[in-house]
Design a protein around this nucleic acid. Structure first.
Length: 198
DNA sequence: CGAGTTTGACCAGCGC
DNA sequence: GCGCTGGTCAAACTCG
């Protein structure tokens, strides 16, 4: 089992990127990034690729960048590593609502208060139940969303991953946007859920 | 009414 | 063996 750590700068509110490499434009993933990520994906992961998530985040107003130096082998708990499952972690700057819209549809199935971290970790499964999972938590030291993807995504319900277009026009995208972004009281709940967003 | 969220309970792995 | 911790389940609840 191997895990990759990617840092993503989410530019919904802040123009600050998390460690974009020099020479790479903040508007599109560079070829180097694609090469590295594709190589990584081809060897460790057969679900949604990092490039796919890059595209989705880019299409939804966020920018994904892959830092080869942050692609770690064997990072994570050994218990998870011993499962022999593919997993990779994304780090992204918190945006206004503290959520990361990666274009997939996720269904929350639990949350836990993690030791040494006042922010709760949330657990999501793929809504159409394909086995894909992700964990979302806020880093203790900085306002960074840590998203851990796990498992295989066996379908692609959003066009983002192929066309690069925003899912806002798709029915599912509308529903996702409605639930995630257009309900102020829900945002309050989410802030309660994730903790205060700086 | 269906889909998603919340939340307490349960289970399994790990360290002591 | 026991306690702690993280991950998952499932019933109740909310919302469109």
């Amino acid at each position: 089992m191997e895990e990759a750590v990617i840092k993503i700068g989410c530019t919904n509110r802040s123009s600050e990127l998390v460690g974009p490499r020099e020479g790479s434009t903040p508007t599109q993933p560079s070829d180097d990034h694609k090469t590295v990520s594709n190589r990584l994906i081809s060897t460790v992961y057969s679900g949604p690729t990092i490039v796919d998530i890059q595209k989705a985040l880019f299409a939804t107003g966020s920018y994904a960048s892959v830092e080869p130096g942050n692609i770690c082998r064997g990072v994570g708990k050994e218990r998870e590593m011993n499962k022999g499952e593919s997993k990779y972690t994304l780090k992204m700057k918190c945006n206004g609502n503290g959520v990361a819209d990666d274009g997939y549809r996720w269904r929350k199935y639990g949350q836990k208060i993690i030791k040494n971290n006042p922010n709760r970790r949330s657990y999501y499964k793929c809504s159409p139940r394909c086995g894909a999972k992700k964990q979302v938590e806020i880093s203790l030291e900085d306002p960074t969303l840590i998203i851990t993807y796990e498992g295989l995504y066996l379908h692609f319900s959003f066009p983002n991953f192929f066309s690069g277009q925003s899912h806002a026009d798709s029915p599912a995208g509308k529903k996702l946007k409605t639930r995630e972004e257009e309900k102020p009281h829900k945002l309050d709940d989410r802030q309660k859920q994730y903790g205060p967003v700086p």
